[in-house]
Amino acid sequence: MVRRVLSLPSGRIAVGLLVLIALLAALGPVLAPQDPLATSDNTLASVSWSHWLGTDYLGRDTFSRLLDGSRVSVLASLEVALVALGVGAVPGILSVYLGRVFEWGTLRLADTLVALPFLLFAVAVTALLGNGLTQAMLVTGVLVSPLFYRVSRAATLAVARSQYVEAAIISGASVGWVVRRHVWAKVLPPIAIALAQTIGVGFIIVSSLTFLGIGVQPPAPTWGGLLASDLGYLDYQPWAPLAPAILIMLTVWASNLLADTIRDVSGEAGRAFVTHRRDVRSAHDASDQNATAHSGGAR
């Protein structure tokens, strides 16, 4: 699967970008040239050698704050995605096998969660449990989980009714065997798609919350927080919001691109799609005569 995703240019771009952002998150605080919290008299400075992206209204180095803030933003969005995956996917698969009561209960629960607006809910929970990003993201993850529940349940249902699963059952396979052997491989691609999408969505939520000033105490930098404070000084630095905005956009875009690519290459059609592309490319590489012979043969 990984190899198939990387065989497409869009997959390479998406993965490359996400790896870069992950590196930023891991090493950002170390790489930051200056203390992101240190204030100075040099407020709202423009771009210079000492301040690559200038300074903010308290004279803090914007570039350092961006690098330092990447960790919180990335970790929080990952937290959303992973919580949603754990809370959603497992019950989704099991709902097909564990009998009526479990199925009915989880379905209604998923319906209920869908009905709650997660941004508002996250705000409410931080008000209740104290202003922490972890709590807010945990709640958001639970609220997004119906997506995983539905996706994995739908994929499992399709597989559970298939003849090859029936053939395995006739050979005496247990539920565990069927899930490991047949269901897993079919459910994984749609879950991976949902996961990549959720990372994007999670990123937007984190950015929105921090933009609103929820979840993180003021001096600590985040991308959403930077965007918010930059917007207050548009008169002096009209270009300032660009850097955090572009970073947020790039991350979300890369996640969605990755989701699209996984969808393109997964399953039977995806296998054919990738093979076809490889054929076409090798045909192009070969001489003209060979190329026509090859595509003729593929028909």
């Binding site: 090859y164 006739i170 047949h182």
Partner: peptide, 21 residues
């Protein structure tokens, strides 16, 4: 069933084998 005494062959060979295996 595990003893393998009875087996079944389906009509549609397209769907009776797992496409990923």
């Amino acid at each position: 069933r595990r003893r393998g005494v009875v087996q079944y062959v389906f009509q549609d060979p397209l769907r009776s084998l797992d496409p990923d295996l």
